[in-house]
Amino acid sequence: MTDPDEVDPWSLSLVARVERDPAPTHTDTLVAAARAVVLLLSDPRVTEPDGELRAAVQAWRDRRIRKICRRARGAKWDRTAGLPHAEASSGDAVVRVFAPHPRDDVPDLLRPLQVGGLDLSDPEDLAVPGPDGVLTIRLTPGVTMSTGKAAAQVGHAAQLALERLPQAGRWQESGSGVRVVVGAPVLPEHERVDVRDGGFTEVPPGTVTASAGFEGTV
């Protein structure tokens, strides 16, 4: 689905490493995706006036914010290291986030990677850390999303938290920890950010897919 009113759309590419053994879990992949987005947007290559990625990120921010999650393994994953990126891990999950680019002009190293169809699982005894010192991202109950779609949504939630919540500076200083849970928001609207999806894939437009805020002490 495309937006007829949007001219020259840009997107931010996330790539999840998905080896067969060990396979990453769903939640670890989401945590890594959220942290990787924050690491890229906080990188001096983006924040410094002469940073090599600053112009690309600004061009992307000036448009509708789009994120696309791909997956790779083996040599294809290794080759993506040749592009400027930020990387984060959680458990066996690793996610790289690359500089934004025009949606229809995907870098050669990313173009062959599969978009969609990434659907991982969690163990039944998944342990969820407490809220202190981390950003809590809550996925909306009843909104069904693949792992790839959810990774883009939590990445967007982390970006909004970084840009809009006053505790973000202290959070970054403490390591930008993230936890991801399923549940309705527990914070009032002025203490959280909500992600409303554009409706291009998997969910109807305007769906609130996630919220994020600092539920504990930062």
Rank of each mutant, 00 (worst) to 15 (best):
G183R: 08
L110G: 07
K76S: 15
Q114F: 03
G91R: 02
R63P: 04
D21L: 08
T80Y: 10
R79P: 00
L160K: 06
D43F: 02
D122H: 00
V46T: 10
R70C: 13
L39F: 12
S121M: 07
A32C: 04
T207N: 02
P44F: 15
L40R: 01
A32M: 07
V186I: 11
L41R: 09
T47P: 08
G116Y: 07
P185C: 05
A150M: 11
L30Y: 02
V97N: 13
G133N: 12
P166H: 01
P188Q: 12
P22C: 09
D50H: 12
T140M: 04
D132P: 05
A36L: 07
T209Q: 02
D132N: 10
T217K: 06
F214S: 08
A150N: 11
G216H: 01
V46I: 03
A36R: 04
P4W: 10
S11A: 15
A56Q: 11
G177L: 12
T207L: 05
A150T: 11
R70Q: 15
L120P: 03
P22R: 09
L83D: 12
R111L: 15
R79D: 13
V95P: 04
T147E: 10
L118F: 11
G74V: 05
D21T: 09
A151S: 15
P129L: 11
S176P: 00
S42R: 04
G142H: 01
A81D: 14
G51Y: 07
V97M: 14
E202S: 03
P9W: 08
A184C: 06
L14P: 00
D3G: 09
P9C: 09
G117T: 01
K76H: 12
A150G: 09
D8C: 11
S176Q: 10
D21I: 04
G74F: 14
A184Y: 04
V218D: 01
R73G: 10
L165E: 02
A16M: 08
V94F: 05
D28L: 04
V178A: 06
R64P: 01
A212H: 03
E215F: 03
C69Q: 06
L12A: 12
P129C: 13
V97K: 11
H26A: 04
E48G: 06
F98S: 14
T147L: 10
E163W: 05
L14G: 05
L165Q: 00
A55E: 13
P204L: 06
Q58F: 06
P185K: 02
R96C: 14
K149M: 14
E48V: 04
P102C: 15
D119A: 09
E173D: 14
A152M: 10
W171N: 07
V97W: 14
P205T: 00
G130W: 03
L40T: 02
A127C: 05
S176V: 03
